[in-house]
Simulated assay, not measured.
Amino acid sequence: MSYIHTPIISSMKLHRVNTITAMKLEIQSRKLIKPSVSTPLTLRHYKISLIDEFAPTMNLPLVLFFPPSLDNNPTLIVQLEELLKKTLTNLYPLADRYMEDTHTVDCNNQGVEFIQARPDITIQELLIKKTNLHLVNELIPSKLLASDLNNAMLATQVTTFQCGGLALGVSSAHRIGDVSTMITFLNQWATLTRKDTKLGFGGIDFTSSSMFPAQGLLPLGGWEGRGIPPPQM
């Protein structure tokens, strides 16, 4: 699990320095965010590649921290939802579900889980050195995507702290992407929030299966877990 934060602690006075060992997190809402434009039928079935087949069955979690802002935007959450729709239009496989029987992602615009949460502490209290950093796991979407029956590819969580600080947690399935894919997703989402930017979106080339066709193999560790001998290469 990774987390990134800006150095906000040294510039702010902390009145509580006790060790934080627990955090009460209230889930305010859960919803599915679908792409703003439906995926064409010609792209309905995204085939994974041989490289994807070998990817371990795991999730890639990341948390980004943002300090309290003097320019508090009360519509920020709504904007993030709307811009997530546009982001998923370009990165359409992330919005759907993996089908194990066909080794494909069913690109049927089922949507990405978008969670809003609020803890009972401030962002400063969470990030001080004495805090139990395992609490950061609470800021990541709780659904274990890789083992979920729906085989979702991505989930997001926006956590708003008492002080006005914010944490953006993302968890993506390794089945169709790696850290580079996640960074591309976050960069695209962030780019859309900057209305004055002239940056374009280079996109992701979802054609790896044409170069490295899938062979129906289990992911790393999958053979032992099912009592099946590994293939002879």
Rank of each mutant, 00 (worst) to 15 (best):
I8F: 06
S180N: 14
T181L: 12
V78P: 03
L76H: 02
P7A: 10
S208K: 11
N151F: 11
T89V: 09
T102K: 11
L217P: 06
L126M: 07
I20T: 01
V170P: 04
L218F: 05
D196R: 09
A22L: 08
Q28F: 13
I121T: 11
P231F: 09
I48V: 07
A22E: 11
Q79V: 08
G165I: 01
E82N: 14
N187A: 08
P67A: 02
I228C: 12
H103R: 14
I115G: 05
C107N: 13
S10Q: 03
R226N: 12
V78I: 10
G169T: 00
N109T: 06
Q79R: 09
P141E: 01
I9D: 00
L91D: 00
E224F: 10
S49T: 06
I4C: 13
V112T: 04
L64A: 05
G111R: 00
M182C: 06
D106H: 13
K129V: 13
S10P: 04
Q79E: 12
F212H: 13
S69R: 15
D106A: 14
I20R: 00
S49D: 03
T19A: 07
D52M: 10
F65M: 03
N72R: 15
R175T: 10
H103I: 13
R175Q: 09
L94S: 04
